[in-house]
Each structure stands twice: as C-alpha cells, then as structure tokens.
Amino acid sequence: MATDRAVAAPAALAGRRPRAGFRRMLRVGLGLRLGVFGLVVIVVVSLLALFAPWVAPFAPEKTDFSLMTAPPGSLGHLMGTDIQGRDVFSRLVYGSRVSLLVGVIAVGIAILAGVPIGLFAGFMGGFVDDLLMRVMDTLYSFPTILLALVIVAVLQPGLVNVMVAVGITSIPLYARLVRGSTLSVRETDYVTAAKAIGARSPRILALHIWPNVSAPILVQGSLGMAFAVLAEASLSFLGLGVPPPTPTWGGMLRDGFSFIDTAWWLSVFPGLAIFFLVLAFNFVGDALRDALDPRLAHSLGSGRGPGKE
C-alpha cells in the first residue's frame, strides 16, 4: 500500500514517511505498554482485594439510612452511597474479591479439565479424538452465558456454583487449543525420535509435548480471566450470581439500575471497575501472545477476537 503510493506521488510521501514509520513503531511499542498498563491494573485490584479491610473506609454492608443515595464526595463517601446508605467505594473494593476469586478458580477448573482432554485427544488421534472433540464442539456451540445460566439455575446461585458454571463453559477453549498444538507437535521429528528410542507415551507427553503446548495456555488463561470476570458480572447482574448482601460489581449495577435517573454514580463506578479489569486482562493476554510469538508482534488491531468472548 505505502509502496504503491510512493510510485504515484513520491513527493507527497517524502514528508509523511517518517511519521508513518513513527506511528508504526508506536503501534508495536504500544502493545507492550498496554500489557504493562494491564499488569499494573491487575496488581492494584489484587492489592485492593487482599487488603480490603484496611483500604475500604467503611464496612461494605454497613447501612446508613440518614445518608441514602448521597452523591460522590459527601461526608467521606468518595463515590457516594447507595439506596441503603452503603458506601459505594467500599463495596467496590470488597466486590473485587468476588471478581478475582471467580476468575482464578473458574480459569483453574477450565485448565485442569480442558488441558488433559486436549492433550489426550491430540496425542491419541482417531476415534478418541473424534469423540472428545465432538463433545467439546457441542459444549462450545452453547452460548456461554446461556450454559452458565442453566448450570447456576439448577445448582442455585452462589459463589461456588458461579465458579463451577463459568469454569465448565470455558473447558472447550483450552481443550481445542491444546489439541491443536499437540497435533502439530506430535508429528515433529523429535517426537518420532523419542518414540524410536522406545520412550513411553507418558514420558513423551510430559517431556516433549507439554513444554511446547504450554505457552498458549498462559495467553488463553489471561484472556479467560477477562471472560470470567465478565461472566460473573453478567450472572450477578441477572440476579443469578453471588447473592446479596455480598458486594459484587454486577450486583451493584443491578441494584443501581432502578435509580438510573436519580443516582448516576450507582451505575457508573461498578461498570468502570468491570471495564478496566476486563481490559487489563485482555491487554496482558495480548502482550503475552506478542511476547511468546514474535511473528504476531503487530497484533494490536490485527483482528483476533479474544477467544470466544
């Protein structure tokens, strides 16, 4: 594209080329910068979650009926209070615990179940592969939120069930990913060589295949955290997540929705929190991908969706 224009109008481009080059450089460097930004956000939110009792100025469930829906800034309430006079900032700080916990456990469940399935299917091939992948595809064809909804509806809403539901819905992502890389590694010369000297399957899987398929899991894990945070918030918003009075970001949005015309802060701050945490995990995932696979270094804006989400 640039070279075509250069032929057509070299003079016009002469002045532009350095800037275009500079912008391209900026774009590549930006991916890394955004990754660092994402990491900082994640660390800050984690610290807030860890030290919530020391950070939060008020107890998250402490009601104050003399100060209902007070706007931000009034009497030490940084982000205002909700309909029961509870401090929005304190509830946000405590809510981060649910978001992160659900994310970590759900991604853990998905990896623990999905990775062995993918390894096994890819390594065995044939009928086992077909069967496992058909089941995974069926699971994958369900819209995630719908599947999580069914699981939570049957198991009853609650912290553990939300983790399980979000975890189960993410299993196919890891299974498909690991199967794909296992298939390509299986055919390499060094695996053939290992087989030729008589290595057993578990040894080949652990020593030769696993190190080569593990890196993409890290990337998917970060994107999976973003997805889990979003899914938990969605379920809580629908009233099918972690039940009150435990503060969750999705639940806060649900409560605030009724006062959308009078108390904007109830709808704005929890949403911002979800948005930034999801964005942060996406950025870290993208940066990891770029770092692990230099061929994709231009990936910012290259059009990959972050997995299923």
């Binding site: 918030a233 949005l253 709808s267 949403g271 979800i274 948005f275 996406n282 969706g305």
Partner: peptide
C-alpha cells in the same frame, strides 16, 4: 471488546 454489554445498555 472489554465493555460489558449490560453496562453499555445502562
């Protein structure tokens, strides 16, 4: 892509 659709709706 990071924007929750229900928050966007709100």
């Amino acid at each position: 892509v990071a924007l929750p659709n229900f928050w966007l709706a709100i």
